[in-house]
Computed example of a mutant assay.
Amino acid sequence: MHSSTPAASAAPAAPQSPRRRRALAPLEPVGARARWLLGVGFFVLFVAVWGFFTLGGFVSPTFLASPVTMVKEAVLLFTEFNFGHDIGMTVWRVFGGFVLATIVAVPLGIAMGTWKSVEAFFEPFVSFCRYLPASAFIPLLILWAGIGETQKLLVIFIGSVFQITLMVAVTVGSARRDLVEAAYTLGANSRGIVLRVLIPGAAPGIAETLRLVLGWAWTYVIVAELIGSSSGIGHMITDSQALLNTGQIIFGIIVIGVIGLISDFAFKALNRRLFAWSTI
């Protein structure tokens, strides 16, 4: 009779597939399909947990509406309260103030990143203003510009312009010195260095900066619309808060997130198309 030890009788463990090991490896990229499935999966899980606590009666509807109630309130907003107009006004304010900030901030940031004397002159003031909350300017802006569209555009402008300026200056100032020296060796003058080396090299980083700050602009517009406004998503949220209508409040917040996400994807697609050679 032959006896076998447990080690001899145990079947060898199946080796883990290289693909599975790589999928769990740090910094390993995820495929486009898996990324979409994971992203959508989180939203599904979030709504499921939200529905469990609200529809199950664990949370009072006064404090948190259920997903079903939110959908009903969303239909009511579009059919009876002209919410499409509010969305259009908010989008206009965001992009209007953001474009104004971009027109001022990008040239100034390029100048600060290119010439150190310009940076020394502007940087202390720009850094100081960068820490001032845009909402703190609302009382002054109401006094100066009233409660119309100019005041709301200026809130977004103030909240965006200083951030863009410094980030663009850092991007331009971090240009590779070897490229600049090579351009000088090939006979380029100072103007040529700026137009043919610094700006083209910094363009992908500048575009990425604008994409990031556009997301911040959405937070500023809601603050601007909470005070002295008769239209916009922020105005709707304020009115709903007075009526304790959490369904409309939640839907307004979701609409902001969806529009911001769409604009972010559009910005990414445009950047990839314009700067296909960049790694950003």
Rank of each mutant, 00 (worst) to 15 (best):
L195V: 09
R196P: 05
V197F: 05
V197Y: 00
V197S: 09
I199N: 01
I199Y: 08
G201P: 01
G201C: 10
G201E: 12
A202M: 11
A202R: 09
A203M: 11
A203H: 00
G205A: 01
G205S: 04
I206W: 00
A207P: 10
T209L: 11
T209C: 14
L212H: 11
V213Y: 07
V213A: 09
L214K: 02
G215S: 08
T219P: 02
Y220K: 03
V221F: 04
I222G: 02
V223A: 15
V223M: 13
V223S: 14
A224T: 03
E225H: 00
L226S: 12
L226Y: 12
I227G: 10
I227N: 02
G228S: 03
S229T: 06
S229A: 15
S230I: 13
S231T: 14
G232P: 01
G232D: 02
I233V: 13
I233K: 03
I233C: 09
G234I: 10
M236Y: 12
I237V: 13
I237D: 06
I237K: 03
I237Q: 05
T238K: 12
D239F: 11
S240W: 05
Q241C: 05
Q241H: 11
L243K: 13
L244N: 13
N245A: 08
T246C: 10
T246A: 08
Q248N: 12
I249C: 04
F251N: 00
G252D: 09
G252C: 06
G252W: 04
G252S: 03
I253W: 00
I254K: 06
V255D: 11
V255L: 08
I256H: 04
G257D: 04
G257P: 08
G257N: 01
